[in-house]
Design a protein around this nucleic acid. Structure first.
Lengths: 212, 212
DNA sequence: CCCCTCTCGTGATTGTTTTAACAGGAAAAA
DNA sequence: TTTTTCCTGTTAAAACAATCACGAGAGGGG
């Protein structure tokens, strides 16, 4: 299996394949062709075949794709069930909301601890996750082999937290702040969710749509 | 000014330009060249010049771009200050969290009402936004000329809410559910934020990074 | 067993996006 | 004023991505 380079757009589509295939499985559908899957996802059959071909090709001529097999392959590509170790930094509104609502487990992430600087929260336990003091963070990451940090601090604390995380040897950051994070010369992976950018895009489409 | 077609990627970058330019303005920087802006945003100067050229070109040879002018142009392209009228559907955890934390006003959106089916919430007031019964939604949208709906229902209620919104004449939906929404033959604009897809992408990069 | 249908994987083609190169004109310096 | 420097907008080239077209091989019916 050769993997010279997987394009950004292909990676962007993989989680959506996983979601769709999981739904198909729940609906009790065992096999599907690129054409049917394409109709469902509004993609061309060609693109679907080529996307999976990047990773080796999991289909069979004259038959299509086995839904379970394909789902498992996609899950494996995305690293689900790898049991990535995780911490959360910043237990403000967004942080707490994630702790309470988001099902990290089902995507293969284990949330070990949350960190904050506010002393009224430290020592508490939010949905089974202990809240610790930020000063312990670097050690905690190193000793527990933490792979990923959810960054949900306020603007002021973001870059400082990033520096500490990198010092502790973090490998990836899931960024919910509106900041432009600077990873220095580290090769840390940063994946951001920017609410405001998404809403502004919507504003653009609204301003420029036919019925504007 | 001709606008044959603005590519998706260009639109994707516009909100980031707005954010960066706003920061520059706060820092008291009045002029900037495509080279300096590119260094700051990790984009090539060429790309920046070409992006702005799509909309007419706002710079001056030998000088660069005036930060305030450029920021205002980008804001105008994105429709900030158009005063889009908005409602929120589904006052669960995510919905409430948005109501309490997100500064809709500063991006040019006016939140007029929230809707839910749970009777214990109806009649309440969250951060100055009244919570109404879903049965009133279609009328409310029509009578108040609502442009956008934030969709933060649970999975079960999502498609039903979409149908009602479209019936009321909504023009855009900011989707926080994990569902594949079907707009039927309506030309409603859908902009989604999928937490899980973002996290799964992070998982991919983590699984396939050098230090994996 | 043979034939027909179905559908994948792949190589060729077309289309799109990014990067590079440059002509022209403003700013700044001499 | 003249010259030099700087930097845009635009055109051309390169890189990248999506689509098309087809050979090959499995499934299924007769």
């Amino acid at each position: 299996m050769k993997k010279p380079y997987i394009s950004k757009n292909v990676i962007q589509r993989m989680p959506r394949y996983l979601r769709t295939l999981t739904e198909l499985q729940k609906e009790g559908i065992h096999r599907i062709s690129s054409g049917e899957l394409g109709a469902r996802m509004r993609l061309t059959p060609s693109q679907i075949r080529q996307d999976f071909a990047c990773f080796g090709g999991f289909g069979q001529q004259g038959y299509g794709y086995n839904v379970k097999t394909l789902r498992d392959e996609v899950a494996s590509i995305l690293g689900v069930n790898r049991g990535f170790q995780m911490v959360l930094v910043g237990t403000g509104k967004i942080g707490q909301s994630l702790l309470e609502n988001f099902d990290f487990e089902s995507y293969g992430f284990k949330l070990r601890a949350a960190f904050d600087i506010r002393h009224d929260l430290i020592g508490e336990n939010i949905c089974g996750v202990p809240v610790l003091d930020c000063s312990e963070m670097e050690d905690f990451i190193r000793s527990n082999g933490i792979h990923v940090a959810v960054l949900s601090t306020n603007r002021a604390g973001a870059q400082r937290a990033v520096d500490t995380l990198i010092a502790g040897g973090i490998r990836a950051i899931w960024n919910f702040t509106e900041c432009e994070l600077s990873p220095g010369d580290s090769d840390v992976i940063i994946e951001s969710i920017h609410f405001s950018e998404s809403l502004l895009r919507l504003g653009y489409h609204l301003s420029n749509s036919a019925s504007a």
